[in-house]
């Protein structure tokens, strides 16, 4: 699993995802497929990814919490988790490449890496894509490139998304300016998962908006360059902050850590409100807490994931107690 592991530029970057959309020639796009065609596509693709390296997962056999938890972990999209009827995804052994079937497009290949690592995510995703390309006729036109359900994905049909923790940009009121600058460069910024509540964790996803008329290499180059600059910007603000208010930040982070450690019950909202300050202090080296463990905690403490992974957690109160135990399990051993 990608989370819980160290990655490049982890002090600011949480994860890097690459998603490639592909469709099979000769079929309508999802939503316009007959039940028979859906079945046909699933078995065709499953046949292509057979073998020890791959596993087919039938989402219809999972509970709602289990499906939503897969979306919490960015293994599948929220849309696929909530899709009715036939829904499957194929995963590799390591769990870092997942292939969604019958989401917005017939096939969506996703690779995810911890930290900021576009090259590795691209390599893994394209390795999986080559298997499909060799064994299926992929919808493509010389003019518009890879043909996708929505014209916003035409061309290369790739979306590279990097999740960043930007507390300093946010506090300095610079997200607006950042969004405007990024827009000019064909990139977008949004809150993690597109959910309103996430903004308080100061997590943002930056991804390429334009997919047609720019090659894969150009998209990678642009993302690497621009996000590299944002990471540098956030980092230099961390450093300034750490210099000017070192003891205040450390004191506040230690108190928060203490609260978390000795609580019997923690709500998702409360944990989220502590996450950003703890991560900032950890990233600035003011407390000894591995940032990747905090990121893991953020994912594994989401309501659906708690419900999917812990017994007797169907009520919010039960989940809050399980969350407090999870905090101690994941970051309890730190000598901050």
């Amino acid at each position: 699993m990608w989370f819980g592991n160290k990655g490049n530029d982890n002090d600011v970057a949480v994860s890097t995802r690459v998603r490639i959309a592909r469709n099979l020639s000769g079929y309508p796009f999802p939503g316009r497929l007959s039940a028979e065609q859906e079945k046909e596509i699933c078995s065709k693709v499953a046949e292509i990814y057979k073998g020890k390296e791959w596993k087919i997962n039938d989402l219809s056999k999972l509970s709602k919490a289990e499906r939503e938890s897969l979306a919490d972990k960015h293994i599948i999209s929220r849309e696929l988790a909530e899709k009715e009827g036939m829904s499957e995804y194929i995963s590799n052994k390591a769990g870092d490449v997942n292939i969604m079937l019958l989401e917005e497009d017939h096939v969506r290949i996703q690779a995810i890496e911890p930290g900021f690592n576009v090259k590795t995510a691209m390599e893994k995703a394209y390795k999986a894509e080559e298997i499909l390309d060799k064994n299926a006729e992929i919808a493509y036109s010389e003019k518009y490139g890879y043909l996708t359900h929505c014209p916003t994905n035409l061309g290369t049909a790739i979306r590279i998304s990097v999740m960043l923790h930007l507390p300093s940009y946010t506090r300095a009121g610079q997200i607006r300016e950042l969004a405007l600058q990024l827009a000019k460069l064909g990139l977008t910024i949004r809150g993690e998962d597109g959910e309103g509540s996430s903004a308080s964790a100061y997590l943002y996803q930056i991804s390429n908006q334009i997919t047609l008329g720019v090659s894969e290499d150009e998209i990678v180059e642009r993302i690497e360059k621009i996000i590299g600059q944002i990471i540098e910007g956030e980092r230099s603000m961390h450093e300034k902050l750490a210099e000017s208010s070192k003891s205040a930040i450390r004191e506040s982070a230690r108190r928060k850590y203490g609260m978390l450690m000795y609580s019997e019950s923690i709500s998702s909202k409360e944990l989220t409100s502590y996450y950003s300050d703890l991560r900032l202090a950890a990233a600035s080296g003011l407390i000894k807490l591995p940032v990747e463990k905090l990121d893991e905690l953020m994912i594994r403490s989401k309501p659906y994931t708690i419900e999917a992974e812990h017994k007797n957690t169907s009520s919010p109160e039960e989940r809050d107690r399980a969350r407090a135990a999870l905090v101690r399990e994941i970051i309890g051993n730190a000598e901050i």
Binding site: D133, E137, I138, Y140, S141, E142, K143, Y144, G145, Y146, P151, T152, L154, G155, T156, G186, I210, T211, L212, G213, V214, S215, E216, D217, E218
Partner: peptide
Amino acid sequence: IHGKTVHEGHSP
């Protein structure tokens, strides 16, 4: 949407 109308990059 894209500012351009002709694909560049990978092909099957």
